[in-house]
Write a protein that binds this DNA or RNA. Structure first.
Lengths: 136, 136
DNA sequence: TTGAACTGGTTTAGTGTTGAACTATCGGGA
DNA sequence: TCCCGATAGTTCAACACTAAACCAGTTCAA
C-alpha cells in the first residue's frame, strides 16, 4: 500500500466517522446528551477514572473534568473519592446513565450499521479484530 | 453482529483516528498548518467552492470561511469570484499550497502506516479490502 | 521521617468553533 | 419585468475547548 493510498483511505475513513456523528447528533441530543458525552459514558465501565478516560478517548484532562461535571449534574454519573488513593475520583454510571448510554450507543450503532451494511457479519468481526490490534 | 458490537467497532475506529491526528499534530504544525487546515487543502481540487468543501468535510460554513481566509493569507490558496455565478468563490491551491498539502498528507499516511505496521502482510491486505468496501 | 518528583484532578484565561442573522446574487414563475 | 424563494458567503455574539498553572495526595530514595 503506497503512502498516498494510505492517506486517501484515512481521509475517507475520517469523513465516514464525521458523517455518522453529524447524522446521530440530533437524535442523541433528544436524549439530553451530546455525542461526545455519550462516548464518555460508554467508556466509564472500562475506564472508571477521569485520567484514564481522558487517555482512552484521546482528549485533554480539563475537557474530561468538564464532561464529568456535566454528566454528574445530569444524574447520569456518580463520583466518589477512591478510599485507596484520595487523589482519584472513581466514576460509575447511575441506572439512568446506563439506560441513556445504551440508548445512545444503539442510535450510533444503527447509523454506523446503515453505512457498513455492505459488510457481512463475518467481515464486520474481522474488521473489529483488526481495529483492536491497531488501537491496542 | 449485535448493535452493541457495532458501537464498539465504531468506537475503536474513532479512537484510531483521534490517535493518529494527535500523533501528527506536531509534525504538521511544523509545516505552519493545523491538521484540519490540511484536510481542507486536500479536498480543494475535488471541491473547489467553500460551500462544497464544508459539506464534504462535514463542517459548518462559518468555520470554512475562517479556514479559507487563513489559508489564503498564508499564500496556500487562491480565491477568485466565479464569473458564471458572482456569489461563488472558486478556490485553487497555489504551488506552495500544493507542496505543503502533499507533505502533510505524507506525514498523515506515515503515521497511519506506522500503526498498520503492527499487522501482518495478510492482515494489512484484509484491512485494506474492508476499508475499501466501507468507503468505496 | 522527610522532601523531591510524580500523578490525579481542577481553575482560569485565552483561543477556537459555530448558530443565527445578514448581504448579495441567482433562478424561475406570473 | 418584478417578485419570491433559494443559495454562497460573511459577520458577530455566544459557547466550547484546552494549555498553563495550580493544589492535593502519593511514592520512594536517602
Amino acid at each position: 500500500m503506497t503512502k498516498i493510498d494510505a492517506a486517501r483511505l484515512w481521509s475517507l475513513n475520517h469523513r465516514l466517522l464525521m458523517s455518522v456523528i453529524a447524522t446521530v447528533a440530533a437524535e442523541v441530543g433528544a436524549l439530553g446528551l451530546e455525542v461526545k458525552e455519550l462516548f464518555v459514558l460508554s467508556e466509564v465501565d472500562e475506564h472508571p477514572y477521569p485520567a484514564e478516560l481522558a487517555a482512552a478517548l484521546v482528549m485533554p484532562k480539563p475537557t474530561m473534568t468538564l464532561y464529568v461535571k456535566r454528566l454528574e449534574a445530569a444524574g447520569l454519573l456518580r463520583r466518589e473519592i477512591d478510599p485507596d488513593d484520595l487523589r482519584k475520583h472513581r466514576l460509575a454510571l447511575t441506572p439512568a446513565g446506563r439506560k441513556v448510554m445504551q440508548r445512545g450507543m444503539t442510535l450510533l450503532a444503527d447509523a454506523f450499521a446503515a453505512r457498513v451494511g455492505r459488510l457481512s457479519a463475518g467481515e464486520q468481526a474481522q474488521l473489529r479484530g483488526l481495529l483492536e490490534k491497531l488501537t491496542g
